[in-house]
Design a protein around this nucleic acid. Sequence first.
RNA 1: CGGGGACUAGUUCAUCGGUAGAACGCUCGCUUUGGGAGCGAGAAGCAGAGAGUUCAAUUCUCUCGUCCCCGACCA
Length: 407
Amino acid sequence: MKYSKLFPKTIKQVPIGAESVNHQLLVRAGFIHQEMAGVYTYLPLGWRVIEKISNIVREEMNKVNGQEILMPVLHPGENWKKTGRFDSFDVLFKLKGAGDKDLVLGPTHEEIIYPLLAEYVNSYKDLPLHLYQIQTKFRNEPRAKAGLLRTREFIMKDLYAFHESDEDRDEYYKIVREAYLRIFKKLELPVLITKASGGTFSDLSEEFQVVTPSGEDTILICSKCDVVINKEIAGKDCSECGGVIKEEKAIEVGNIFPLKRAYAEVFNLSFTDKKGEKKIVSAGCYGLGISRVMGAIVEVSHDDKGMIWPESVAPFRVHLVGLDLEDKSVMEMAEKVHKLLEAEGIEVLFDDRVGVSAGAKFADADLIGIPYRIVISKKTTEDKLEVKKRSEKETKFMSFKQFLEIV
RNA sequence: CGGGGACUAGUUCAUCGGUAGAACGCUCGCUUUGGGAGCGAGAAGCAGAGAGUUCAAUUCUCUCGUCCCCGACCA
């Protein structure tokens, strides 16, 4: 990809109203554009990051036997009336369809997936069943804030798992819990598994929290036994060992909990067991905020110059900066290195602009935060590429071959 | 939903009663090229919407809208 063709370009000024770090940097670098409070367009660089996060999540969901589906954004209001959430779900977007029909923009998908499964699941042989989707959710938050951390429209992965028994459900819960840990490790996002309120469903519920001052949740960490609890449900001292606790601000990037039989009863999601008896399905729900993860990564991984993307989700792997490009031989060398890298399957953003100062190009590279920067100029040759990692200070010189070994 | 702040060029901001200005960005030309280069020329605005006060409103008053911040809220 040539930077000269990339939409859009970076901007120097901090956008008005953008106070949180993720909002400022993502807008300035051209990853996202705000349309209204809590609603954003993902621009080419930002969308590449979203896709990479999604693919990491997808891969791990498939490993735990998840089958990907895509449910509708638009829900029949009727289903929400059945569960009582048409009136009780306070951030529900409601609208009228043709014939004055009540419709809902989906903030979560129990009201779709339960009726769906009730139609198809009959026997214990149909279980367990693990279905997930990566999709846009809508929640009419009273106050959207902090860039991608709290929005009215957001991208989320939600996995719904259905089981014959609570034992089977709880066993699968542990499996997904491990998958989540692998996901956040790949995303290089340090998470603390936090005991949380189960809402209306359960006492057992865990959140994956990223500690950062910009977080809006408060979690309590026990200094003695390493238990982490959301402040919403905790007392003064550690409930496990009575140890002293410390408070931290954190961002919730995932939440897993058993749904038990709450919706299965409403929508009559039942099956016939081996003995021929009718039973109600037991379920678990596993959420992960894809777009929020993007904001959280920026919050924990940046410096005063810009973002520092983990290699797993960076929009490109190499930022090739061409200097002295009005010199024909330098331009040819840069174009050659660009092609060679792409031939190796390495994603490259090539700053091919002519007449833009070196300082401006370096500043853009730092802001965008791609892991490896290669500079091509009068001072370099193919056997002496100038390489710098975004996360490190030192610049190293190496041949193309040597670079391929480290990248 | 309560409290506070803001809305003027594409962006960030000045003007604070007398019909609008800078910086950045953009276009053209020349010079320059290792940490956001210089000079010159140019394009760019119904001052969020509406009403009121006034000879005159971007400026004062009110209403509405939008955005941000602090709370409340956050299956």
